[in-house]
Amino acid sequence: MKVLVTELMWNDGMEELKRNGYSVDYDMELGRKRKELLELAPNYDALIVRNETKVDPELLDAAKNAKVIGRLGVGLDNIDLEAAKERNMPVIPAIHANATSVAEYVMAAMLDAYRPLAEADADVRRGNWDRKFFTGYELNGKKLGLIGMGEIAHRVAKRANAFGMETIGYDPFVTPFDHILAETGVRPVETLDEMLAEADFVSVHVPLTKVTRHMINKEKFSLMKSHAYVINSARGGIIHEQDLAEAVQSGKIAGAYLDVLETEPVQRDSLLSQIESIHLSPHIAGLTDESQSRTAMLIAQEVIRVLNGGKSLCAVV
């Protein structure tokens, strides 16, 4: 059987497929080569994608011999789940495999906001010694607001607790006995507006849907503290980028850390990239060596399970 990998995948996952007798073809840029992908798809028993490959009805029909789609990550907005379900095509995301890495990214963003060591290093190398300018703030005692309280938010909350932060969360689907509340001490709030008004940092942990698209917009920024930061390691489109730029430029909020954008990669004329207190990274929150090894191995093993006639507990359709 043959497996086609269309985007970046750590080698240990591909080696796991090969050890189990599967032929693997790998092109980390194939997700961007639509015509070539559609021509190749009928030749494979499984496709493994990341977030750039558009898995729509056209591709699913082209992949007429495929029995499973593996997703190297957890976001599913690039995959038409209804179309996959109609074609009896299991879709397997790497559930929780990169949660720790994303949680550590959020902590790194908050630490950078309050203690910008890279900027201090650059300033010292220019011959300066400005201790007053680089006097920062403590995370201890500050309030972190979580939008969405799933597994990643749970791990963020645990780490924030270790820094002495107070954590509040908004998620209408979380019950009082869910882990994040029962075990981590996050205080739930009833409305998003309430959370935004209280938090010193706001971290986004929800999928991109019709409901969540642009849920953080001009109206919401007006509720936030002027010294607050927003952190988005979830999906571009949840934050209204033009409204964010205006909010930061006008001093309504202090800044932002964006790992995801509505259009990736960032456009050369993007206003966001021209604002110093909006910090951009290339969709790397979940990309650490450890998380990518876990992701690759999980997807490889679950794809093997399905190709061998079994069912994956990670499958979403």
Rank of each mutant, 00 (worst) to 15 (best):
Leu8Pro: 01
Met9Ser: 07
Asn11Thr: 13
Asn11Val: 13
Gly13Ser: 11
Val24Arg: 06
Asp27Leu: 08
Lys33Glu: 15
Lys33Leu: 14
Arg34Cys: 13
Arg34Ile: 12
Glu36Ala: 14
Ala41Glu: 07
Asn43Tyr: 08
Ile48Thr: 04
Val55His: 02
Asn65Leu: 12
Asn65Ser: 08
Val68Trp: 03
Gly70Thr: 04
Leu72Glu: 02
Gly73Arg: 03
Leu76Phe: 10
Leu76Arg: 09
Leu76Pro: 11
Asn78Arg: 10
Asp80His: 08
Leu81Lys: 13
Ala83Trp: 03
Lys85Tyr: 08
Arg87Cys: 04
Arg87Asn: 06
Asn88Cys: 07
Pro90Trp: 10
Ile92Thr: 00
His96Val: 14
His96Ala: 14
Glu104Arg: 07
Met107Phe: 03
Met107Ser: 01
Ala109Asn: 13
Ala109Met: 11
Leu111Ile: 15
Asp112Lys: 09
Ala113Asn: 11
Tyr114Val: 07
Pro116Lys: 03
Pro116Arg: 12
Ala122Leu: 14
Val124Gly: 01
Gly127Gln: 10
Trp129Asn: 10
Trp129His: 11
Phe133Arg: 15
Phe134Lys: 11
Thr135Trp: 10
Gly136Thr: 12
Leu139Met: 14
Leu139Pro: 06
Lys143His: 04
Leu144Ala: 06
Gly145Cys: 13
Gly145Tyr: 13
Ile147Asp: 09
Ile147Tyr: 07
Met149Thr: 06
Ile152Met: 04
Ile152Tyr: 02
Ile152Ala: 07
Ala157His: 05
Lys158Ile: 14
Ala160Lys: 03
Gly164Lys: 12
Gly164Gln: 08
Ile168Arg: 11
Phe177Ile: 05
Ile180Thr: 13
Thr184Trp: 02
Arg187Tyr: 01
Ala197Ile: 02
Ala199Cys: 12
Ala199Tyr: 03
Leu208Trp: 08
Val211Trp: 03
Met215Pro: 05
Ile216Thr: 00
Glu219Cys: 05
Glu219Asp: 15
Phe221Ile: 00
Ser222Arg: 14
Leu223Gly: 02
Lys225His: 12
Ala228Asp: 09
Tyr229Asp: 08
Val230Ile: 15
Ile231Ser: 09
Asn232Phe: 03
Ser233Tyr: 00
Arg235Ile: 02
Ile239His: 05
Gln242Pro: 01
Ala247Ser: 13
Ser250Met: 10
Ala256Glu: 09
Asp259His: 04
Arg268Pro: 02
Leu271Ile: 09
Gln274Asp: 13
Ser277Val: 00
Ser277Tyr: 05
Ser277Pro: 00
Leu280Lys: 10
Ser281Thr: 15
Ala285Tyr: 01
Glu290Cys: 00
Ser291Asp: 07
Ser293Tyr: 06
Leu298Lys: 15
Val303Gln: 02
Val303Leu: 08
Gly309Tyr: 12
Gly309Phe: 06
Lys311Gly: 05
Ala315Val: 06
Val316Lys: 14
